[in-house]
Design a protein around this nucleic acid. Structure first.
Lengths: 261, 261
DNA sequence: CTATCTTTGTGCACGCGTTCACAAAGACAT
DNA sequence: ATGTCTTTGTGAACGCGTGCACAAAGATAG
Protein backbone atom coordinates (compact mmCIF):
# COMPACT_ATOMS: atom_id res chain seq x y z
CA UNK A 1 0.00 0.00 0.00
CA UNK A 2 1.23 3.43 -0.90
CA UNK A 3 0.35 4.93 2.44
CA UNK A 4 1.04 1.84 4.49
CA UNK A 5 -2.44 1.75 5.94
CA UNK A 6 -2.22 -0.59 8.87
CA UNK A 7 -5.05 1.02 10.72
CA UNK A 8 -8.56 -0.21 11.27
CA UNK A 9 -11.39 1.65 9.56
CA UNK A 10 -12.73 2.74 12.94
CA UNK A 11 -15.51 0.43 14.12
CA UNK A 12 -14.82 -2.13 11.44
CA UNK A 13 -12.87 -4.50 13.63
CA UNK A 14 -15.86 -5.55 15.69
CA UNK A 15 -17.84 -6.27 12.55
CA UNK A 16 -16.36 -9.47 11.23
CA UNK A 17 -19.35 -11.54 10.09
CA UNK A 18 -19.84 -14.81 11.87
CA UNK A 19 -19.85 -16.69 8.59
CA UNK A 20 -16.44 -15.25 7.80
CA UNK A 21 -15.03 -16.23 11.18
CA UNK A 22 -16.18 -19.79 10.56
CA UNK A 23 -14.22 -19.87 7.32
CA UNK A 24 -10.98 -18.37 8.60
CA UNK A 25 -9.78 -21.70 10.03
CA UNK A 26 -10.36 -23.22 6.62
CA UNK A 27 -8.21 -20.62 4.93
CA UNK A 28 -5.61 -20.97 7.61
CA UNK A 29 -5.36 -24.68 7.03
CA UNK A 30 -4.95 -24.26 3.29
CA UNK A 31 -2.39 -21.52 3.81
CA UNK A 32 -0.41 -23.63 6.25
CA UNK A 33 -0.22 -26.39 3.68
CA UNK A 34 1.07 -23.91 1.11
CA UNK A 35 3.52 -22.55 3.61
CA UNK A 36 4.91 -26.00 4.21
CA UNK A 37 5.46 -26.33 0.49
CA UNK A 38 7.29 -23.00 0.58
CA UNK A 39 4.85 -21.34 -1.78
CA UNK A 40 5.43 -17.60 -1.44
CA UNK A 41 2.14 -16.20 -2.77
CA UNK A 42 -1.32 -17.33 -3.83
CA UNK A 43 -4.10 -15.75 -5.80
CA UNK A 44 -7.60 -15.65 -4.36
CA UNK A 45 -8.61 -18.10 -7.06
CA UNK A 46 -6.04 -20.71 -6.07
CA UNK A 47 -6.57 -20.35 -2.36
CA UNK A 48 -10.32 -20.47 -2.77
CA UNK A 49 -10.03 -23.72 -4.69
CA UNK A 50 -7.84 -25.20 -1.97
CA UNK A 51 -10.28 -24.16 0.73
CA UNK A 52 -13.28 -25.26 -1.25
CA UNK A 53 -15.01 -21.91 -1.46
CA UNK A 54 -15.88 -19.22 -3.98
CA UNK A 55 -13.05 -16.80 -4.76
CA UNK A 56 -15.25 -13.73 -4.45
CA UNK A 57 -16.31 -14.88 -1.02
CA UNK A 58 -12.73 -15.38 -0.01
CA UNK A 59 -11.74 -11.90 -1.14
CA UNK A 60 -14.64 -10.37 0.72
CA UNK A 61 -13.74 -12.34 3.81
CA UNK A 62 -10.20 -11.06 3.72
CA UNK A 63 -11.42 -7.55 3.12
CA UNK A 64 -12.92 -7.61 6.60
CA UNK A 65 -9.49 -8.24 8.06
CA UNK A 66 -7.97 -5.42 6.07
CA UNK A 67 -6.38 -5.30 2.65
CA UNK A 68 -3.49 -7.66 2.81
CA UNK A 69 -3.24 -8.58 -0.85
CA UNK A 70 -1.30 -7.14 -3.75
CA UNK A 71 -3.23 -6.54 -6.96
CA UNK A 72 -1.86 -8.36 -9.91
CA UNK A 73 0.02 -10.76 -7.62
CA UNK A 74 -2.11 -12.21 -4.86
CA UNK A 75 -1.56 -12.75 -1.16
CA UNK A 76 1.66 -13.37 0.67
CA UNK A 77 1.24 -16.77 2.28
CA UNK A 78 3.32 -16.28 5.40
CA UNK A 79 1.87 -12.90 6.12
CA UNK A 80 -1.69 -14.11 5.76
CA UNK A 81 -1.01 -17.08 8.00
CA UNK A 82 0.12 -14.70 10.66
CA UNK A 83 -2.74 -12.27 10.24
CA UNK A 84 -5.40 -14.94 10.39
CA UNK A 85 -3.73 -16.66 13.31
CA UNK A 86 -3.68 -13.40 15.16
CA UNK A 87 -7.27 -12.60 14.32
CA UNK A 88 -8.40 -16.00 15.56
CA UNK A 89 -6.37 -15.62 18.70
CA UNK A 90 -4.11 -18.54 17.93
CA UNK A 91 -0.95 -16.71 18.79
CA UNK A 92 -1.74 -17.32 22.40
CA UNK A 93 -2.02 -20.47 24.44
CA UNK A 94 -5.48 -21.89 25.13
CA UNK A 95 -5.63 -24.40 27.95
CA UNK A 96 -8.58 -26.72 27.39
CA UNK A 97 -10.32 -29.02 29.83
CA UNK A 98 -12.16 -32.14 28.72
CA UNK A 99 -14.93 -33.33 30.98
CA UNK A 100 -16.19 -36.88 30.57
CA UNK A 101 -13.41 -39.31 29.75
CA UNK A 102 -15.32 -42.08 28.03
CA UNK A 103 -14.68 -43.37 24.56
CA UNK A 104 -15.07 -40.00 22.93
CA UNK A 105 -13.35 -37.97 25.59
CA UNK A 106 -10.33 -40.25 25.52
CA UNK A 107 -10.24 -40.13 21.73
CA UNK A 108 -10.24 -36.35 21.82
CA UNK A 109 -7.50 -36.29 24.42
CA UNK A 110 -5.40 -38.41 22.09
CA UNK A 111 -6.37 -36.46 19.02
CA UNK A 112 -3.33 -34.77 17.55
CA UNK A 113 -5.17 -32.04 15.70
CA UNK A 114 -6.01 -30.60 19.05
CA UNK A 115 -2.64 -29.43 20.18
CA UNK A 116 -1.54 -28.39 16.73
CA UNK A 117 -2.91 -24.87 16.91
CA UNK A 118 -2.35 -23.35 20.28
CA UNK A 119 -4.82 -25.56 22.05
CA UNK A 120 -3.41 -27.54 24.90
CA UNK A 121 -5.22 -30.24 26.83
CA UNK A 122 -4.66 -28.94 30.31
CA UNK A 123 -6.93 -31.27 32.24
CA UNK A 124 -9.07 -34.37 31.97
CA UNK A 125 -12.01 -34.62 34.33
CA UNK A 126 -14.36 -37.50 35.03
CA UNK A 127 -17.04 -38.32 37.57
CA UNK A 128 -15.91 -41.91 38.02
CA UNK A 129 -13.69 -42.15 41.13
CA UNK A 130 -12.11 -45.28 39.69
CA UNK A 131 -10.70 -43.27 36.83
CA UNK A 132 -9.01 -40.70 39.02
CA UNK A 133 -5.28 -40.91 38.55
CA UNK A 134 -5.48 -43.08 35.50
CA UNK A 135 -3.34 -41.59 32.76
CA UNK A 136 -5.05 -40.95 29.44
CA UNK A 137 -2.95 -39.56 26.64
CA UNK A 138 -0.25 -38.98 29.20
CA UNK A 139 -2.44 -36.91 31.48
CA UNK A 140 -3.85 -38.11 34.79
CA UNK A 141 -7.62 -37.99 34.99
CA UNK A 142 -8.94 -35.89 37.85
CA UNK A 143 -12.20 -36.16 39.69
CA UNK A 144 -15.19 -33.92 39.15
CA UNK A 145 -15.16 -32.84 42.78
CA UNK A 146 -12.10 -30.76 42.05
CA UNK A 147 -13.50 -29.24 38.87
CA UNK A 148 -13.59 -25.74 40.26
CA UNK A 149 -10.03 -25.74 41.42
CA UNK A 150 -8.74 -27.41 38.26
CA UNK A 151 -10.32 -24.80 36.03
CA UNK A 152 -9.03 -21.94 38.12
CA UNK A 153 -5.53 -23.28 38.61
CA UNK A 154 -5.03 -23.87 34.92
CA UNK A 155 -6.70 -20.72 33.74
CA UNK A 156 -9.03 -22.72 31.52
CA UNK A 157 -11.53 -20.67 29.59
CA UNK A 158 -12.54 -23.30 27.04
CA UNK A 159 -14.26 -26.47 28.17
CA UNK A 160 -15.13 -29.58 26.18
CA UNK A 161 -18.08 -31.66 27.35
CA UNK A 162 -18.07 -35.34 26.40
CA UNK A 163 -20.24 -36.67 29.19
CA UNK A 164 -23.45 -38.66 28.82
CA UNK A 165 -26.38 -36.36 27.99
CA UNK A 166 -27.84 -36.58 31.48
CA UNK A 167 -24.79 -35.02 33.08
CA UNK A 168 -24.07 -32.38 30.48
CA UNK A 169 -26.13 -29.49 31.83
CA UNK A 170 -24.84 -29.95 35.34
CA UNK A 171 -21.24 -30.11 34.16
CA UNK A 172 -21.88 -27.09 32.00
CA UNK A 173 -23.21 -25.11 34.97
CA UNK A 174 -20.18 -26.00 37.03
CA UNK A 175 -17.79 -25.09 34.26
CA UNK A 176 -19.46 -21.72 33.81
CA UNK A 177 -19.47 -21.10 37.54
CA UNK A 178 -15.76 -21.86 37.58
CA UNK A 179 -15.10 -19.24 34.92
CA UNK A 180 -15.30 -21.06 31.61
CA UNK A 181 -16.80 -18.83 28.94
CA UNK A 182 -16.58 -21.06 25.86
CA UNK A 183 -17.93 -24.56 25.61
CA UNK A 184 -17.67 -27.22 22.96
CA UNK A 185 -20.50 -29.66 23.59
CA UNK A 186 -20.46 -33.20 22.25
CA UNK A 187 -23.35 -34.39 24.40
CA UNK A 188 -26.67 -34.63 22.59
CA UNK A 189 -28.35 -32.04 24.78
CA UNK A 190 -29.41 -28.44 24.49
CA UNK A 191 -27.31 -26.52 26.97
CA UNK A 192 -28.59 -23.36 28.50
CA UNK A 193 -25.97 -20.86 29.54
CA UNK A 194 -25.93 -17.25 30.73
CA UNK A 195 -25.20 -14.39 28.37
CA UNK A 196 -21.59 -13.99 27.50
CA UNK A 197 -20.91 -17.71 27.31
CA UNK A 198 -20.45 -19.24 23.86
CA UNK A 199 -21.55 -22.77 23.14
CA UNK A 200 -20.85 -24.71 19.99
CA UNK A 201 -22.23 -28.18 19.60
CA UNK A 202 -20.98 -31.16 17.68
CA UNK A 203 -23.61 -33.79 17.24
CA UNK A 204 -22.89 -36.92 15.25
CA UNK A 205 -26.44 -38.11 15.39
CA UNK A 206 -27.79 -34.89 13.94
CA UNK A 207 -25.27 -34.92 11.12
CA UNK A 208 -26.23 -38.45 10.20
CA UNK A 209 -29.91 -37.60 10.26
CA UNK A 210 -29.36 -34.68 7.91
CA UNK A 211 -27.47 -36.98 5.56
CA UNK A 212 -30.26 -39.53 5.81
CA UNK A 213 -32.79 -36.91 4.79
CA UNK A 214 -30.91 -36.07 1.61
CA UNK A 215 -30.14 -39.71 0.99
CA UNK A 216 -33.80 -40.58 1.13
CA UNK A 217 -34.63 -37.71 -1.16
CA UNK A 218 -32.02 -38.83 -3.64
CA UNK A 219 -33.36 -42.38 -3.56
CA UNK A 220 -36.86 -41.10 -4.22
CA UNK A 221 -35.88 -38.90 -7.12
CA UNK A 222 -33.78 -41.59 -8.65
CA UNK A 223 -36.62 -44.08 -8.49
CA UNK A 224 -38.98 -41.52 -9.98
CA UNK A 225 -36.52 -40.76 -12.75
CA UNK A 226 -36.28 -44.47 -13.51
CA UNK A 227 -40.00 -44.51 -14.08
CA UNK A 228 -40.43 -46.86 -11.19
CA UNK A 229 -42.72 -46.39 -8.23
CA UNK A 230 -41.62 -43.26 -6.44
CA UNK A 231 -40.40 -43.69 -2.90
CA UNK A 232 -40.98 -40.02 -2.23
CA UNK A 233 -42.00 -39.73 1.42
CA UNK A 234 -44.70 -37.24 0.60
CA UNK A 235 -46.35 -39.67 -1.77
CA UNK A 236 -45.80 -42.71 0.38
CA UNK A 237 -48.08 -41.20 3.04
CA UNK A 238 -50.31 -43.81 4.69
CA UNK A 239 -49.56 -42.40 8.12
CA UNK A 240 -50.57 -44.04 11.34
CA UNK A 241 -53.97 -42.72 12.31
CA UNK A 242 -55.31 -42.81 15.83
CA UNK A 243 -55.11 -46.12 17.60
CA UNK A 244 -56.57 -45.51 21.01
CA UNK A 245 -56.79 -42.15 22.80
CA UNK A 246 -54.45 -43.43 25.46
CA UNK A 247 -52.29 -45.46 23.11
CA UNK A 248 -48.61 -45.35 23.90
CA UNK A 249 -45.69 -46.41 21.87
CA UNK A 250 -44.42 -49.93 22.17
CA UNK A 251 -41.29 -50.88 24.06
CA UNK A 252 -39.37 -50.57 20.82
CA UNK A 253 -39.39 -46.84 21.21
CA UNK A 254 -39.50 -45.24 17.81
CA UNK A 255 -42.53 -46.29 15.85
CA UNK A 256 -45.56 -44.62 17.36
CA UNK A 257 -49.07 -45.07 16.11
CA UNK A 258 -51.19 -42.39 17.59
CA UNK A 259 -52.93 -39.31 16.36
CA UNK A 260 -55.48 -36.96 17.79
CA UNK A 261 -59.05 -36.86 16.56
CA UNK B 1 -14.56 -28.93 -11.83
CA UNK B 2 -15.79 -27.75 -8.48
CA UNK B 3 -17.63 -25.04 -10.38
CA UNK B 4 -20.58 -27.39 -10.46
CA UNK B 5 -23.95 -26.55 -11.79
CA UNK B 6 -26.07 -23.60 -10.92
CA UNK B 7 -29.39 -25.25 -11.56
CA UNK B 8 -29.65 -26.59 -8.08
CA UNK B 9 -31.77 -24.19 -6.01
CA UNK B 10 -30.61 -25.60 -2.73
CA UNK B 11 -33.49 -27.78 -1.64
CA UNK B 12 -35.57 -28.84 -4.54
CA UNK B 13 -37.84 -31.54 -3.22
CA UNK B 14 -41.01 -30.27 -1.62
CA UNK B 15 -39.18 -27.10 -0.70
CA UNK B 16 -38.05 -27.88 2.82
CA UNK B 17 -35.36 -25.30 3.62
CA UNK B 18 -31.98 -26.65 4.53
CA UNK B 19 -32.02 -24.75 7.81
CA UNK B 20 -35.26 -26.45 8.72
CA UNK B 21 -33.90 -29.90 7.92
CA UNK B 22 -30.98 -29.20 10.21
CA UNK B 23 -33.37 -28.47 13.05
CA UNK B 24 -35.68 -31.43 12.62
CA UNK B 25 -33.34 -33.78 14.50
CA UNK B 26 -33.37 -31.31 17.36
CA UNK B 27 -37.15 -31.33 17.53
CA UNK B 28 -37.17 -35.07 17.23
CA UNK B 29 -34.90 -35.45 20.19
CA UNK B 30 -37.02 -33.17 22.35
CA UNK B 31 -40.17 -34.95 21.25
CA UNK B 32 -38.70 -38.35 22.02
CA UNK B 33 -37.91 -37.19 25.52
CA UNK B 34 -41.50 -36.02 25.94
CA UNK B 35 -42.76 -39.28 24.55
CA UNK B 36 -40.78 -41.22 27.11
CA UNK B 37 -42.44 -39.16 29.79
CA UNK B 38 -45.77 -40.05 28.23
CA UNK B 39 -46.65 -36.44 27.53
CA UNK B 40 -49.51 -36.49 25.02
CA UNK B 41 -49.29 -32.99 23.52
CA UNK B 42 -47.01 -29.95 23.48
CA UNK B 43 -47.46 -26.36 22.47
CA UNK B 44 -45.01 -24.77 20.07
CA UNK B 45 -43.86 -22.62 22.94
CA UNK B 46 -42.96 -25.54 25.18
CA UNK B 47 -41.34 -27.59 22.47
CA UNK B 48 -39.39 -24.61 21.23
CA UNK B 49 -38.01 -24.04 24.70
CA UNK B 50 -37.00 -27.68 24.97
CA UNK B 51 -35.27 -27.56 21.62
CA UNK B 52 -33.66 -24.22 22.29
CA UNK B 53 -35.23 -22.30 19.44
CA UNK B 54 -37.75 -19.57 18.80
CA UNK B 55 -41.38 -20.72 18.81
CA UNK B 56 -42.26 -18.87 15.62
CA UNK B 57 -39.37 -20.56 13.89
CA UNK B 58 -40.54 -23.93 15.09
CA UNK B 59 -44.07 -23.36 13.84
CA UNK B 60 -42.79 -22.25 10.49
CA UNK B 61 -40.54 -25.28 10.30
CA UNK B 62 -43.46 -27.59 10.97
CA UNK B 63 -45.58 -25.77 8.44
CA UNK B 64 -43.22 -27.03 5.75
CA UNK B 65 -44.03 -30.60 6.71
CA UNK B 66 -47.76 -29.94 6.66
CA UNK B 67 -50.20 -28.83 9.29
CA UNK B 68 -49.94 -31.35 12.04
CA UNK B 69 -50.99 -29.18 14.96
CA UNK B 70 -54.31 -28.43 16.53
CA UNK B 71 -55.08 -24.81 17.25
CA UNK B 72 -55.80 -24.10 20.83
CA UNK B 73 -54.13 -27.34 21.86
CA UNK B 74 -50.74 -27.90 20.31
CA UNK B 75 -49.04 -30.85 18.66
CA UNK B 76 -49.58 -34.52 19.32
CA UNK B 77 -46.21 -35.82 20.47
CA UNK B 78 -46.38 -39.35 19.11
CA UNK B 79 -47.72 -38.27 15.78
CA UNK B 80 -45.05 -35.62 15.35
CA UNK B 81 -42.33 -38.08 16.27
CA UNK B 82 -43.53 -40.33 13.51
CA UNK B 83 -43.91 -37.58 10.93
CA UNK B 84 -40.46 -36.17 11.55
CA UNK B 85 -38.89 -39.62 11.62
CA UNK B 86 -40.48 -40.39 8.31
CA UNK B 87 -39.45 -37.07 6.78
CA UNK B 88 -35.86 -37.62 7.88
CA UNK B 89 -35.92 -41.15 6.55
CA UNK B 90 -35.38 -42.70 9.95
CA UNK B 91 -38.09 -45.28 9.51
CA UNK B 92 -35.69 -47.25 7.41
CA UNK B 93 -32.41 -48.92 8.20
CA UNK B 94 -29.20 -47.11 7.30
CA UNK B 95 -26.11 -49.29 7.24
CA UNK B 96 -23.06 -47.14 7.91
CA UNK B 97 -19.42 -47.91 7.25
CA UNK B 98 -16.64 -46.31 9.27
CA UNK B 99 -13.30 -46.03 7.55
CA UNK B 100 -10.22 -45.41 9.66
CA UNK B 101 -10.36 -47.22 12.98
CA UNK B 102 -8.04 -45.12 15.09
CA UNK B 103 -8.94 -43.43 18.33
CA UNK B 104 -11.83 -41.53 16.89
CA UNK B 105 -13.12 -44.27 14.62
CA UNK B 106 -13.17 -46.74 17.48
CA UNK B 107 -14.91 -44.23 19.72
CA UNK B 108 -17.59 -43.70 17.10
CA UNK B 109 -18.04 -47.43 16.65
CA UNK B 110 -18.67 -47.69 20.37
CA UNK B 111 -20.84 -44.60 20.50
CA UNK B 112 -24.34 -45.56 21.51
CA UNK B 113 -26.08 -42.57 19.99
CA UNK B 114 -25.19 -44.00 16.64
CA UNK B 115 -27.44 -47.01 16.60
CA UNK B 116 -30.24 -45.28 18.43
CA UNK B 117 -31.94 -43.86 15.36
CA UNK B 118 -31.94 -46.33 12.53
CA UNK B 119 -28.23 -46.07 11.92
CA UNK B 120 -26.37 -49.33 12.14
CA UNK B 121 -22.62 -49.73 12.05
CA UNK B 122 -22.39 -52.30 9.28
CA UNK B 123 -18.66 -52.33 8.74
CA UNK B 124 -15.37 -51.07 10.12
CA UNK B 125 -12.57 -50.60 7.63
CA UNK B 126 -8.91 -49.81 8.17
CA UNK B 127 -5.76 -49.74 6.07
CA UNK B 128 -3.62 -51.41 8.70
CA UNK B 129 -3.34 -55.15 7.92
CA UNK B 130 -2.56 -55.79 11.58
CA UNK B 131 -6.02 -54.57 12.53
CA UNK B 132 -7.87 -56.88 10.17
CA UNK B 133 -9.96 -59.29 12.16
CA UNK B 134 -9.59 -57.40 15.40
CA UNK B 135 -13.01 -56.86 16.94
CA UNK B 136 -13.92 -53.29 17.78
CA UNK B 137 -17.28 -52.70 19.44
CA UNK B 138 -18.10 -56.29 18.61
CA UNK B 139 -17.40 -55.92 14.92
CA UNK B 140 -14.37 -57.32 13.15
CA UNK B 141 -12.30 -54.72 11.36
CA UNK B 142 -11.86 -55.39 7.66
CA UNK B 143 -9.08 -54.34 5.35
CA UNK B 144 -9.28 -51.44 2.91
CA UNK B 145 -8.54 -53.77 0.01
CA UNK B 146 -12.05 -55.16 0.31
CA UNK B 147 -13.71 -51.75 0.61
CA UNK B 148 -15.56 -52.06 -2.64
CA UNK B 149 -17.05 -55.43 -1.84
CA UNK B 150 -17.90 -54.49 1.75
CA UNK B 151 -19.85 -51.42 0.65
CA UNK B 152 -21.73 -53.34 -2.02
CA UNK B 153 -22.50 -56.39 0.08
CA UNK B 154 -23.90 -54.35 2.93
CA UNK B 155 -25.75 -51.85 0.80
CA UNK B 156 -23.94 -48.99 2.51
CA UNK B 157 -24.85 -45.55 1.23
CA UNK B 158 -23.49 -43.51 4.13
CA UNK B 159 -19.78 -43.53 4.88
CA UNK B 160 -17.91 -42.06 7.81
CA UNK B 161 -14.29 -41.04 7.29
CA UNK B 162 -12.06 -40.98 10.36
CA UNK B 163 -8.72 -41.50 8.66
CA UNK B 164 -5.67 -39.25 8.87
CA UNK B 165 -6.07 -36.23 6.59
CA UNK B 166 -3.65 -37.56 4.02
CA UNK B 167 -5.75 -40.61 3.26
CA UNK B 168 -9.16 -38.95 3.37
CA UNK B 169 -9.53 -37.93 -0.26
CA UNK B 170 -8.43 -41.30 -1.54
CA UNK B 171 -10.79 -43.12 0.79
CA UNK B 172 -13.53 -40.73 -0.22
CA UNK B 173 -12.98 -41.47 -3.90
CA UNK B 174 -13.12 -45.18 -3.28
CA UNK B 175 -16.27 -44.89 -1.21
CA UNK B 176 -17.96 -42.86 -3.92
CA UNK B 177 -16.82 -45.27 -6.59
CA UNK B 178 -18.31 -48.10 -4.56
CA UNK B 179 -21.67 -46.38 -4.45
CA UNK B 180 -21.64 -44.27 -1.29
CA UNK B 181 -23.55 -41.02 -1.81
CA UNK B 182 -23.37 -39.46 1.63
CA UNK B 183 -20.22 -38.86 3.60
CA UNK B 184 -19.57 -37.66 7.10
CA UNK B 185 -16.00 -36.44 7.19
CA UNK B 186 -14.03 -36.11 10.41
CA UNK B 187 -10.68 -35.68 8.71
CA UNK B 188 -9.44 -32.09 8.56
CA UNK B 189 -9.47 -31.96 4.78
CA UNK B 190 -11.59 -30.44 2.07
CA UNK B 191 -13.07 -33.33 0.15
CA UNK B 192 -14.00 -32.93 -3.47
CA UNK B 193 -16.81 -35.12 -4.66
CA UNK B 194 -18.89 -35.39 -7.82
CA UNK B 195 -22.35 -33.87 -8.01
CA UNK B 196 -25.00 -35.85 -6.25
CA UNK B 197 -22.79 -36.79 -3.33
CA UNK B 198 -23.38 -35.02 -0.03
CA UNK B 199 -20.56 -34.30 2.33
CA UNK B 200 -20.87 -32.99 5.85
CA UNK B 201 -17.79 -32.26 7.87
CA UNK B 202 -17.15 -32.34 11.56
CA UNK B 203 -13.98 -30.56 12.50
CA UNK B 204 -12.95 -30.23 16.12
CA UNK B 205 -10.08 -27.95 15.33
CA UNK B 206 -12.28 -25.49 13.48
CA UNK B 207 -14.83 -25.39 16.25
CA UNK B 208 -12.14 -24.64 18.79
CA UNK B 209 -10.70 -21.90 16.62
CA UNK B 210 -14.08 -20.25 16.32
CA UNK B 211 -14.45 -20.39 20.08
CA UNK B 212 -10.98 -18.94 20.48
CA UNK B 213 -11.89 -16.02 18.27
CA UNK B 214 -14.85 -15.09 20.42
CA UNK B 215 -12.92 -15.79 23.57
CA UNK B 216 -10.22 -13.39 22.50
CA UNK B 217 -12.79 -10.79 21.61
CA UNK B 218 -14.45 -11.15 24.99
CA UNK B 219 -11.12 -10.80 26.76
CA UNK B 220 -10.36 -7.66 24.79
CA UNK B 221 -13.67 -6.00 25.47
CA UNK B 222 -13.53 -6.88 29.12
CA UNK B 223 -10.10 -5.39 29.48
CA UNK B 224 -11.25 -2.25 27.68
CA UNK B 225 -14.29 -1.99 29.92
CA UNK B 226 -12.03 -2.27 32.95
CA UNK B 227 -10.17 0.76 31.72
CA UNK B 228 -7.05 -1.30 31.49
CA UNK B 229 -4.83 -1.66 28.46
CA UNK B 230 -6.93 -3.10 25.69
CA UNK B 231 -5.92 -6.46 24.34
CA UNK B 232 -7.81 -5.76 21.17
CA UNK B 233 -5.95 -7.52 18.38
CA UNK B 234 -6.40 -4.61 16.00
CA UNK B 235 -4.84 -2.22 18.43
CA UNK B 236 -2.12 -4.58 19.46
CA UNK B 237 -0.88 -4.52 15.85
CA UNK B 238 2.92 -4.52 15.57
CA UNK B 239 2.80 -7.10 12.78
CA UNK B 240 5.84 -8.89 11.50
CA UNK B 241 7.23 -6.86 8.61
CA UNK B 242 9.45 -8.35 5.98
CA UNK B 243 12.41 -10.29 7.26
CA UNK B 244 14.13 -11.47 4.13
CA UNK B 245 12.54 -12.00 0.73
CA UNK B 246 13.19 -15.70 1.05
CA UNK B 247 12.50 -15.90 4.77
CA UNK B 248 10.72 -19.05 5.79
CA UNK B 249 9.03 -19.95 9.01
CA UNK B 250 10.99 -21.74 11.66
CA UNK B 251 10.66 -25.45 12.41
CA UNK B 252 8.01 -24.60 14.94
CA UNK B 253 5.54 -24.14 12.19
CA UNK B 254 3.10 -21.43 13.16
CA UNK B 255 4.77 -18.12 13.76
CA UNK B 256 5.87 -16.69 10.44
CA UNK B 257 7.65 -13.41 10.07
CA UNK B 258 7.41 -12.36 6.49
CA UNK B 259 5.62 -9.74 4.53
CA UNK B 260 5.84 -8.40 1.02
CA UNK B 261 7.12 -4.95 0.22
C1' DC C 1 -75.62 -21.84 19.82
C1' DT C 2 -72.79 -18.06 21.17
C1' DA C 3 -68.87 -16.17 23.41
C1' DT C 4 -64.34 -16.41 24.96
C1' DC C 5 -59.85 -18.10 25.14
C1' DT C 6 -55.83 -20.51 23.47
C1' DT C 7 -52.58 -21.67 20.02
C1' DT C 8 -51.55 -22.49 15.34
C1' DG C 9 -50.21 -21.05 10.65
C1' DT C 10 -48.45 -17.38 7.85
C1' DG C 11 -47.93 -12.68 5.44
C1' DC C 12 -44.52 -9.37 5.77
C1' DA C 13 -40.45 -6.85 6.66
C1' DC C 14 -35.76 -6.92 7.83
C1' DG C 15 -30.97 -8.27 8.02
C1' DC C 16 -27.26 -11.29 6.82
C1' DG C 17 -24.64 -13.69 3.55
C1' DT C 18 -23.58 -14.80 -1.23
C1' DT C 19 -22.51 -13.75 -5.83
C1' DC C 20 -21.79 -10.94 -9.83
C1' DA C 21 -19.35 -7.75 -12.24
C1' DC C 22 -16.20 -4.10 -12.67
C1' DA C 23 -13.20 -0.20 -11.64
C1' DA C 24 -8.88 0.63 -9.42
C1' DA C 25 -4.26 -0.82 -8.30
C1' DG C 26 -0.18 -2.53 -9.10
C1' DA C 27 3.32 -5.58 -11.76
C1' DC C 28 5.76 -6.06 -15.80
C1' DA C 29 7.34 -5.31 -20.49
C1' DT C 30 8.74 -2.14 -23.95
C1' DA D 1 6.91 6.78 -19.20
C1' DT D 2 3.38 4.46 -21.23
C1' DG D 3 0.63 0.56 -22.15
C1' DT D 4 -0.98 -3.95 -21.20
C1' DC D 5 -2.21 -7.54 -18.26
C1' DT D 6 -3.39 -9.63 -13.92
C1' DT D 7 -5.75 -9.72 -9.66
C1' DT D 8 -7.65 -7.41 -5.84
C1' DG D 9 -11.34 -4.95 -3.35
C1' DT D 10 -16.07 -3.66 -3.31
C1' DG D 11 -20.73 -1.64 -4.76
C1' DA D 12 -25.00 -3.48 -5.66
C1' DA D 13 -28.51 -6.94 -6.41
C1' DC D 14 -30.42 -11.02 -4.88
C1' DG D 15 -32.02 -14.87 -2.03
C1' DC D 16 -32.50 -17.18 2.27
C1' DG D 17 -33.61 -17.31 7.00
C1' DT D 18 -35.56 -15.06 11.06
C1' DG D 19 -38.89 -12.97 13.94
C1' DC D 20 -43.01 -10.09 14.52
C1' DA D 21 -47.60 -9.74 14.74
C1' DC D 22 -52.10 -11.12 13.71
C1' DA D 23 -56.05 -13.44 11.66
C1' DA D 24 -58.07 -17.94 11.44
C1' DA D 25 -59.17 -22.28 13.66
C1' DG D 26 -60.55 -24.92 17.00
C1' DA D 27 -61.42 -26.04 22.03
C1' DT D 28 -64.13 -25.09 25.95
C1' DA D 29 -67.61 -23.04 28.87
C1' DG D 30 -72.07 -21.28 29.66
Amino acid sequence: MATGRTHRPATRSRGIPEATVARLPLYLRALTALSERSVPTVSSEELAAAAGVNSAKLRKDFSYLGSYGTRGVGYDVEYLVYQISRELGLTQDWPVAIVGIGNLGAALANYGGFASRGFRVAALIDADPAMAGTPVAGIAVQHTDDLDRIISDNGVSIGVITTPPGAAQQVCDRLVAAGVTSILNFAPTVLSVPDGVDVRKVDLSIELQILAFHEQRKAGEEAAADGRTAVDPDTEEAPPMRATPAGRKGPDGDMPAVMPA
